[in-house]
């Protein structure tokens, strides 16, 4: 009797394992099947075009537009270097480099500004009652309802020489001449901070909302000052949201096109404008392709850095 039951139990175990294995196999197949649409989109909309961009960056620009199918690396050299018009010696392409640097600098400043304005905002919302939290979040998302162009022109209206701010300053007699704000780095930074602020607020809010305020009480109870509590408890716990927000702000900033175009004018070109220029007036598609890829590399480096920061900090505290 016992023998029998043992036998049958081991047999049934075998059977169960077999069923398990088969169902797992089926599971894996199903998973591939289910992800097929997404994979197709990624291939046709991301990987495919990317390959074309890479290909184009190694071709010769056509006379008016498009490309001539002759292989060259000249374009890639001209991304950072410049051939002298007369004696063909190579020097730094200052025009490009200054645009790269401005893009990175303005993106960094924008990220820092959105963090400075965004963290207190997120903290404020997260500490409201659950009911009013939704209203505040709703208010934060309202700007998304109107087109980016409209919002950017609204900022222009605020800061131009005969705009709202300058009119007001002159009216109260603080200044006689209008303060030049349009077409400066300030205008671009200001505009981008405004546009990308919600992208910082939302992820930071999400992580503050998850924060257990008992931990803050615990820190106070253990003799931490407000500042120490912020630095040792709140910031480390909110860091994932802060990093997500930084990524969401920094990366689109690098490639921003509309804001620098309208608020920066022709003087304050950023990466996005430079690329657009090559495909448009510049009629240099290969250079546009090479610049696009350069931007991608910079974004990749930034992403890897952000990921490193977030995982590195975790280890340090361990």
């Amino acid at each position: 009797m016992t023998m029998n039951s043992n036998l049958s139990s081991s047999e049934s175990a075998k059977k169960a394992a077999e069923v398990e294995r088969l169902s797992q196999k089926k599971d894996v197949r199903n998973r591939w099947l289910l992800s097929l649409p997404a994979l197709a989109i990624i291939f046709f909309a991301a990987a495919g075009p990317l390959l074309i961009v890479i290909l184009y960056s190694f071709l010769t620009p056509g006379d008016y537009t498009g490309v001539i199918w002759t292989f060259t690396t000249e374009t890639w050299i001209s991304v950072v270097l410049e051939r002298d018009f007369f004696d063909e010696t190579l020097g730094w392409a200052d025009a490009h480099l200054s645009i790269f640097w401005r893009s990175i600098r303005l993106s960094l400043i924008t990220t820092i500004l959105t963090a400075i304005f965004g963290i207190p905002t997120a903290y404020f919302i997260a500490t409201r009652s659950p009911k009013s939290r939704n209203i505040w979040l709703f208010l934060i998302t309202i700007p998304f309802w109107s087109n980016l162009l409209v919002r950017t022109y609204a900022i222009q209206e605020l800061i131009r020489n005969k705009g709202v701010i300058n009119n007001f300053l002159q009216w109260i007699g603080l200044t006689n001449e209008p303060i030049e704000m349009m077409f400066t780095d300030f205008a671009v930074g200001f505009g981008m901070t405004y546009v990308y602020l919600p992208l910082m607020v939302l992820p930071v809010y999400a992580s503050i909302e998850k924060l257990d305020f008992k931990l803050v009480e615990g820190a106070y109870d253990l003799y931490a000052s407000r500042w120490q509590c912020l630095r040792r408890i709140i910031v480390p716990l909110v860091r994932p949201g802060l990093i997500a927000g930084s990524i969401l702000v920094f990366i689109p900033c690098l490639g921003a096109y509309v804001t620098p175009q309208i608020l920066g004018g022709g003087n304050q070109l950023m990466f996005g404008n430079l690329i657009a220029l090559q495909f448009g007036q510049g009629k240099n598609w290969p250079l546009g392709a090479a610049l696009s890829l350069t931007l991608m590399v910079i974004v990749m480096i930034a992403l890897v850095y952000f990921v490193k920061v977030s995982s590195g900090e975790n280890k340090k505290n361990g």
Binding site: D212, G218, Y220, D221, L237, N317
Partner: peptide, 20 residues
Amino acid sequence: PNKRPVNTVFQNYALFPHMT
């Protein structure tokens, strides 16, 4: 609280999750 020589054991302990 940080100026009182009094410490609390919280109901759900409130241990700092990012520290050992």
